[in-house]
């Protein structure tokens, strides 16, 4: 076994976090490292947590970590925050709510910035999950950015997706619009002591009924989580959430859906890898030679159209390489 692989598999946080960073920064050597690690991945159970900003995703994640640790499960968390499109900087603030686990060696929280990715995750999320899998984390929680866009990339990475809603935010409609109804395996109605809770629950239940007319397969349960500040009741609800997620996991295995999802995940990984191995190097090269700019100029002045340009690039790069 390669020494890096050995160390990461033994749970070395420093190396793991550095490798995740190399992936984020798209260093060429990162791909090689992931190749070596890949054989040791795929054994963790991956939970996605998504929902609008302010829905309380980080607080739920924090509580889930605590519940899982009680069962001696090791946990990895990837928390995604938005990159400012103006400055390229980001404030990664999700971990604030998880800091009480900072000293627990069984918990590894790593923040990621979106860096322009639009699907609610970061380009590095997939490989960052691989790194945490190789570290042997039993459970990996991926918290999406939650800016309320089309955050559905998570289904390509997670086994179970938890969608978090809050009463009184017009979430029901947002949820449908954003396609979150289709991706949810478990719903959480968070802050369920607020006005509008009953309405949200009713609407959600009726939407779910409509969606599952045939009544077969998994029926996404709704977990009502009250005020995080009533420690007893809150802990009970988190335990219920954890149970529902576990039931879903079992269902995936027993129904054979897990293999379906793994297939989907593999397809997505191929897609990402193709983009990383074919597209990105080409764009990089074009940018470095200045060709990219001159193509843009041509398109801008309508001397060429983007499709013709793309075909020309393809001819020059891929076909030529084929012949080699």
């Amino acid at each position: 076994m390669d020494s890096l692989v050995k160390k990461i598999c033994a749970g070395d946080v420093r190396l793991a976090s550095r490798l995740i960073r190399d992936i984020e920064d798209k260093l060429p050597e990162a791909k090689a490292k992931i190749k070596k690690l890949y054989a040791y991945t795929g054994k963790s159970f991956i939970i996605g947590i998504t929902g609008a900003p302010g829905a309380g995703k980080s607080t739920l994640t924090d509580a889930l970590i605590a519940a899982l640790r009680k069962k001696n499960k090791t946990v990895g968390v990837l928390a995604v925050d938005p990159t400012s499109p103006f400055t390229g900087g980001a404030i990664l603030g999700d971990r604030i709510r998880m800091q009480r686990h900072a000293e627990d060696a069984g918990v590894f929280v790593r923040s990621l910035a979106t860096r322009g990715a639009l699907g609610g995750l970061s380009h590095a999320a997939g490989d960052a999950i691989h790194v945490m899998e190789a570290m042997g984390k039993d459970i990996i929680i991926v918290e999406t950015v939650g800016i309320g866009q089309q955050e559905i990339d998570i289904i390509n990475h997670a086994h179970s997706v938890v969608v978090v809603l809050v009463p009184g935010m017009g979430d029901e409609i947002q949820t449908m619009k954003a396609g979150l109804m289709e991706i949810a395996d478990v719903f959480v109605v968070n802050k369920a002591n607020r006005p509008g809770t009953n309405q949200l629950q009713t609407e959600l239940a009726s939407m779910l009924n409509l969606a599952s007319k045939n009544g077969k397969g998994w029926q996404p349960p709704i977990v009502m989580v009250g005020d995080a500040f009533e420690p007893g009741a809150f802990a009970e609800k988190i335990a219920e959430l954890e149970r529902k997620i576990e039931e879903h996991h079992k269902y995936l295995i027993e129904s054979g859906k897990l293999t379906e999802r793994m297939h989907r995940k593999a397809m997505a990984e191929i897609n990402d890898a193709l983009s990383a191995c074919l597209l990105e190097p080409v764009i990089q090269k074009l940018a470095s030679t200045g060709e990219l700019d001159s193509f843009a100029e041509k398109i801008k002045s309508r001397k060429a159209d983007p499709y013709t340009v793309a075909e020309e690039i393809a001819k020059n790069y891929f076909i030529r390489q084929d012949k080699k």
């Binding site: 400055t87 390229g88 900087g89 980001a90 971990r95 604030i96 800091q99």
Partner: peptide, 14 residues
């Protein structure tokens, strides 16, 4: 915030 606006990725602990 200023660090973010300077283009850094900033982790804040609270």
């Amino acid at each position: 915030r200023y660090f973010r606006d300077a283009g850094f990725e900033v982790v804040y602990t609270g």
